[in-house]
Write a protein that binds this DNA or RNA. Sequence first.
DNA 1: TTGAAACATGAATCAGTATTCATGTTGAAT
DNA 2: ATTCAACATGAATACTGATTCATGTTTCAA
Lengths: 196, 196
Amino acid sequence: MSTNAYPRTKRGVARREQILRAAEAMIGAQGFSAASIADITRHAKTALGTFYIYFSGKEDVFRELVLEMGQLTRAVITKAVAGAPNRLEAERAGLKAFLQFVIERPSLYRIVEEARFIDADAYKAYFTSFARAYAAQLSEAAAAGELRPGDAEVRAWALMGIAKTLGERYVLWDDTSDIDHVVDEAFSMIRDGLAP
Amino acid sequence: MSTNAYPRTKRGVARREQILRAAEAMIGAQGFSAASIADITRHAKTALGTFYIYFSGKEDVFRELVLEMGQLTRAVITKAVAGAPNRLEAERAGLKAFLQFVIERPSLYRIVEEARFIDADAYKAYFTSFARAYAAQLSEAAAAGELRPGDAEVRAWALMGIAKTLGERYVLWDDTSDIDHVVDEAFSMIRDGLAP
DNA sequence: TTGAAACATGAATCAGTATTCATGTTGAAT
DNA sequence: ATTCAACATGAATACTGATTCATGTTTCAA
């Protein structure tokens, strides 16, 4: 197996996962270039060469982690938003769920942001695809009279910007115990900014 | 001169500036690790070793560029905001000026964002100092009844997040001819979100 | 139970580039 | 005009860390 083919045995599946998690931890903590393959395999308790059985190189694991983050974020937010009675409550729930997710997986968050500089295409793909879906929701809600009319795409990017930045400031930098306060304050601005 | 002391002759001043501009262009275009010192000096039309007369290493130029960006952004926004009749108009003017600045110096924008991963302290310093001043303005405006009451710090970070993200999306990725549309749409959301 | 495919190992390569340094050249003060 | 500090040069050095590979070990289907 030279690159990235899926493992054929239980052991293989487990090893691959071990390495992936170690890569998340190391790259998340030290950044892409500072984290060496040796760091990753050491942390995964495997030999150096084993890495190359499962991944074709450092960028390859990295890309996979970005993909993973994409799927997770979507899943988490979709689930959090599911029960909301209307679009505005969905915004609140989505923001809160996102920040909560950053608390749980800070490494993945950092990795996605670093992707801009390591694998710009993966980064763009992640955010544009997210934005497209987001804008569709906003657009629909505006049509239903739940939001004031306005450019759904610009709104989607602005709202993503708020979430990203608050996540960085209030979770990564300074693990505020009071995430709810941040959510409330930001949401009240968003609510009044969008409500009909 | 082993590191970073200021040049003593006209020629020295000019060379240093040449190299700084070349570093901005190369690092901005290719990213910190992909841009080699050789790239930078080639672009600056000087010998490799000359670089080390003026800078102690790659991180050193990088840090200086981040500093420069800090001063420039402040200056540009302060100036743009100066004539605004009230805080809300200041927000509009500031957002527009920021996006315009990204159009003019895309490399500096990228460099500051990459600083998060290369020189986290410089990055933090840049944004927290900016946020502090921003929050003070918002706080003052709220006290004067120009804005609805609310947590000025959270607002400052949220607004910075909007600006950063719109800059990335609508300037770096897709040089929209119609920046004014983006500003208008984002601003109408901000206005309603903050107006008393 | 056995044999072949899958997986594991880590020392040895290989590549790229940051940094140094010994040797010139230029600037400007006297 | 002279002189010394400042500046310029780029080949040589030094280092880091990614990737390979020859040699075992384990899994599992038959």
